[in-house]
Each structure stands twice: as C-alpha cells, then as structure tokens.
C-alpha cells in the first residue's frame, strides 16, 4: 500500500451515470509530492483493449480498492473505488457518479493528476477459489469482477465461471468480462433485458462451489441466505463510507460475528457468514 501521484489516462462515460477511469502511476513526479497543475507527456493508452489478454498481473488483488483524491479542494476526503482492472502501473476503475466525491472524479480529464492510496484492503483470495464459481453483481457491484474474472480465468483449479449480473434497467460492463467467463446471466428490474427480477431469481447456489458477490446490501443479504441454505461457500464485497481507507479512523466498521470490523482493512471482502447485515441476527 502506497500513496502516489497518478495521472488520468482516460475518463469516459460508458453508460448513463457510469464512468470508466484509467490512471497511471506518475514517473515524472514520484509519489508524495504536491499535485501539479497538469501532467504532460502521456505515452500510454488505456489498457482496456481486449486483444491484449496477456497483461502482466499487477500486485493488486482483485477486490482491493484505491482511495482517490483529485486536485479539487472539495470534497475534502478521498473516495474509495474498487479496482476494475490492473496491469503494471495502470489501474482502471468503473464507477457510478452518485455524490460530490464521484462527481469530482468524473470531472478528471486526461493528464490531470490524481492522488491514489492503495491497493487497500483484502480482496478475493484468488488462489483459494476452486471448482464451479459464480460471480454475482448488483449494479455497479460489477466493477471488481472484470479483474477478478481475468485472474480466475487463468487459474487451473477453476472449472467454470458464471457471471450473474443484475441491473435496474441499463446493462453495462458485461462486454469487459465476457472474454473471461463461461456464461453470463442477466436480470433487470424493469425486464428491459434478460429476466425481469433480481439476480437471486436467476441463480441457485447449490450447483456452485463458490459464490462471490458484490452489490447493494439487500442483495448481499439475499445471496448470503440462499448460499447458506444451499451449503455453498460465499464471499461478499461490502461497501461503506470511509475517511482514511487505511484502518486508522474506524469510520467504516460493519457488524460481524467477531464484533465491529473495519471494511477498509479487514475487508472489503468477507466470508458472508461472518457479516451480520441486520446489525444483529
């Protein structure tokens, strides 16, 4: 984990309200300096050209995140964004513009400096996931699954990899993951694509050895419950408001069987049975 200056390579909308940002560690300025007015001399292109499947793995674990802060004075705090793809010194994020923080990040232009702290937290234990695997995404919860799917697809101990994605209406991010999975199932709340309903309507966990889920809390809770009934291993990636992202402030804790745990360093990926979504149970 480091705090470094990066530069924005590309930041563009891929669906209404959904942005994809690529950043590259800045060699010119090094880490820990003031944010300069603007970087010059961008050489690399954004890495999401799908011909190149042989990118080197970066030391980032799938499911980890970075704390990102732009040069703007407001908002004060950095924002945690999950790693969508990582290769060498380039990190890609898929995010939804929701509040002041993500709006400031959405305003980044090519060449703009970004202060990034990371990779933060515990991601998915790629080497420890085997057999038939389902990735369950709710909305922007699909973000970490591109890098995760790529890493899992290279693992000899994975026999099948199914992506189950739920959206309100508009689909996004699927084509980025398609090259690395054996099957994609889609549900939309308004029935505009795939099955009308929720992800939990289109997947039964029983046939799977592991279910890995990221999305809103009600979805994670439903997935946890159905995995528990089916006896399927389940890992969930949890979202929380954060200030520091490094475990110092205790602002992002969630209630677990072993007491309050920090989402930023003890998570964001937890075994589902650990997490007490209702605060009690």
């Amino acid at each position: 984990m480091k705090s470094d200056l990066y530069v924005a390579l590309e930041n563009r909308q891929i669906a209404p309200g959904i942005m994809r940002l690529s950043i590259q560690r800045s060699e010119a300025t090094g880490g820990m300096r003031e944010l300069p007015e603007r970087e010059i001399g961008i050489k690399r292109k954004t890495p999401l050209n799908f011909e190149a499947e042989d990118w080197a793995y970066s030391p980032v674990e799938p499911g980890q995140f970075f704390m990102l802060k732009t040069r703007a004075v407001e908002p004060l705090l950095p924002r945690p964004l999950s790693v969508h793809e990582a290769s060498g010194d380039v990190v890609v994020f898929l995010y939804q513009t929701r509040g002041a923080g993500t709006k400031a990040i959405a305003a980044l232009e090519t060449g703009d400096p970004v202060l990034a702290t990371g990779p933060c937290g515990r991601g998915f234990p790629v080497d420890d996931i085997t057999g038939r695997v389902a990735l369950i995404a709710g909305g922007i919860g699909i973000a970490p699954f591109r890098y995760l799917a790529r890493r899992l697809s290279k693992s000899p101990s994975i026999s099948s990899l199914v992506l189950v994605a739920g959206f309100r209406s508009m689909l996004f991010g699927l084509e980025d993951i398609a090259p690395f999975v054996t099957e994609i199932r889609v549900a939309t709340e308004d029935g505009s694509a795939g099955t009308k309903g929720f992800v939990t309507d289109i997947i039964a966990p029983a046939p799977f050895d592991a279910v890995l889920a990221c999305g809103p809390i009600p979805m994670l809770k439903a997935v946890k419950d159905s995995c528990k009934s089916a006896g399927t291993r389940c890992l969930v990636s949890v979202e929380a408001r954060m200030a520091c992202g490094i475990g110092a402030c205790l602002g992002c804790t969630i209630n677990t069987r072993s007491g309050n745990r920090r989402v930023c360093v003890d998570g964001p990926v937890f075994p589902a049975e650990e997490v007490l979504f209702d605060g009690g149970e």
Binding site: L76, R241, A243, L250, G251, T253, N255, N260, G279
Partner: peptide, 23 residues
Amino acid sequence: RPGNSGIRLQETRAGLMNSIGLQ
C-alpha cells in the same frame, strides 16, 4: 467498547463529522 452503530462519518463543506463512539 464496540463504538457507535449506524453511520459514523459524514463529510461536510471543508470538514468531517464523526460519531465513532470511542471504539
């Protein structure tokens, strides 16, 4: 002490509100 439940952080203009509760 387990600290407070519910939301613990809220960013404001040029500031941060917290209610950690001495965890």
